[in-house]
Computed example of a mutant assay.
Amino acid sequence: MRTFIVTCYIGMIFIFTCTESLFLLLQEQKLSFQFNASPSFSDFFINDLINHPDITYFNQKAGHIICFFILALLLYWASHRVWLTTLLFLIVAFSTELAQLFFSRSGRLLDVFYDSIGLTMFLAFYLFYQVIVVLDRSDSYRVD
């Protein structure tokens, strides 16, 4: 069941990232795809950070971070292995951005970086939790 939930979430990510317009999907529930059989792979390496200093750009990137933080949580919940979570996470992050190039969207390596912030946040929470568990166990062995 956990694998099914994670697979559905990844599918949702792919739908959101490959639809022609995320705005139309969210506002009007209009799902449409425009396939481009020969994308320009050099677009993957364009750094568009300077071109978009507005709030919409910030909100989109915050969405990347939150969405992929949840993905990391779900992957760990399903696998209970940090290395597998990290590997699958990176595969999904790169795949979604590369897939966007085929669907007339702007897949960017920079967005993989934003996605990875979500993974970093998950890893920080995971390590913090592990430290708390170790400290809690060491307290239970202490004799006062």
Rank of each mutant, 00 (worst) to 15 (best):
A93I: 02
I91K: 02
I66T: 10
L88V: 05
F14M: 15
S79G: 03
T19L: 01
L22V: 10
P39M: 10
A72R: 06
I50H: 12
F45D: 08
L73W: 11
F14S: 05
S104K: 13
S140R: 15
T17N: 06
F122W: 13
D111K: 04
G63M: 02
F69A: 10
T19H: 00
L74I: 03
S38A: 11
Q29W: 09
V112T: 04
F23N: 11
Y141G: 15
R81V: 03
T17L: 03
D48W: 00
F33M: 06
K61E: 08
T85E: 01
A99H: 05
L101N: 09
D139N: 15
F128S: 14
N36D: 13
L49N: 07
F94T: 00
L31N: 04
S116Q: 01
L123N: 06
G107Q: 06
D54I: 04
A72E: 06
T17P: 01
N36I: 09
L22C: 01
A62F: 13
P53N: 11
L25H: 12
Y114V: 02
A62G: 02
F113G: 00
F16T: 11
I132T: 11
L109K: 03
A78T: 09
D136K: 14
V112W: 00
R105W: 06
W83M: 00
F128P: 00
R137N: 15
I65N: 03
M121C: 15
T19A: 09
Y57D: 08
S42Q: 14
F122C: 12
L127Y: 13
L88K: 05
D115P: 07
Q60M: 06
Y76H: 13
